[in-house]
């Protein structure tokens, strides 16, 4: 392969990089009537890891997770705590077999997450930003773990 050709290919790759939207933003959504407007990363972690079962205002948090087969699950935990699903499943096996807490229900699709969140007063789940609509409230945005993240348009809800 000639040097010129390598340069050409490299240029294509570099040009393509910023426009790779494969890692669209994931957001954490809650029931619009639960009284929570925004959450910190640690608060989100505590709830999805079953460590804290209440929102700051005392309402019981009712998290919903996704099945391993849905790509959003791996993306969510990678962006939230930098962990692989194997680590997350190992964590839950410790909780379940020592009877500390039980694992959240798991759904197969983003639409089911929204249904769970709207039908539970303390419902909280994660979905792709593009799927979040007026039925739910965004309380946390997960930035994909990418260095020099390209700027992208913010969609105001």
């Amino acid at each position: 392969m000639s040097l010129k050709r390598i340069r050409y290919l490299l240029a294509i790759v570099l040009l393509a990089l910023p426009s790779l939207p494969a890692w669209a933003e994931l957001v954490v959504v809650v029931n619009t009537r639960c009284g929570v407007a925004a959450m910190s990363r640690n608060e989100v972690i505590n709830i999805f890891f079953g460590r804290n079962r209440q929102f700051f205002n005392g309402i019981e948090a009712q998290p919903v997770d996704m099945l391993d087969t849905h790509p959003d699950r791996a993306r969510f935990y990678q962006a939230l705590v930098g962990k692989d699903l194997a680590d997350i499943n190992a964590y839950w096996s410790r909780q379940v077999f020592s009877g500390r807490t039980h694992q959240p229900a798991k759904t197969a699709t983003a639409e089911e997450v929204i249904k769970w969140v709207t039908s539970h007063p303390g419902g909280i789940g994660f979905i792709d930003l593009a799927k979040a609509d007026a039925r739910v409230r965004i309380v946390y945005e997960l930035k994909p773990a990418v260095i020099d993240e390209p700027k992208r348009m913010k969609i105001e809800p």
Partner: peptide, 23 residues
């Protein structure tokens, strides 16, 4: 609150010592 037969938690992680997958 739990009552019945329970695993002992003398030290951290000691109540899940047998669950190899968890550590």
């Amino acid at each position: 609150l739990r009552a019945g037969r329970l695993g002992t938690e003398f030290f951290m992680l000691s109540d899940s010592r047998l669950v190899g997958y968890s550590y």
